[in-house]
């Protein structure tokens, strides 16, 4: 019998050997992602310095926009790390979705419950009811 888990043509199978030309190609991609991640971090810090929550007001629309902006950039960063650095994007489709789908589902539930419940608690504290 042949162990097909070790014997696939995929990029990152255990015994997959990359020749030098392939290596150059992969490294080029790595540096590209590095540049992007660094750029995003710099933009985030710059925005944090120029648009402060203390100045905008924690409940203002402007701050809400910046919060969303940060969350989107964070998800972009996380996507690059998981799909490129951890090369989940190069694994089989089955495996990729088995890792991502349940996690995404659970996180969305956690987010819902934390926003819903904390809004209720804050409201109760403010109105005393």
């Amino acid at each position: 019998m042949i162990r097909d888990d070790l014997n696939k043509d995929a990029e990152y199978a255990r015994a997959a050997y990359h020749d030098d030309a392939h290596g150059v190609q992969i490294r080029k991609k790595i540096w590209k992602v590095t540049f992007l991640l660094t750029l995003i971090t710099i933009v985030e810090v710059a925005v944090g310095i120029f648009y402060s929550r203390a100045e905008l007001g924690g409940e203002s629309m402007g701050w809400l926009g910046i919060k969303l902006f940060y969350i989107i950039l964070t998800i972009v960063k996380a996507g690059y790390i998981v799909l490129s650095f951890m090369h989940l994007g190069d694994e089989t489709k089955n495996f990729k979705y088995m890792i991502l789908a349940p996690y995404a589902l659970f996180i969305m539930y956690l987010l819902f419950i934390l926003i819903f419940e904390s809004t209720y608690v804050l409201d109760a504290l403010r109105t005393g009811m």
Partner: peptide, 22 residues
Amino acid sequence: AQAEEVENSVAWGGDGSPFRIS
């Protein structure tokens, strides 16, 4: 990759492994 022969007792017994990952 090279095909690697292993004994039946330690091999994946199904048709093809679903994730093809070590």
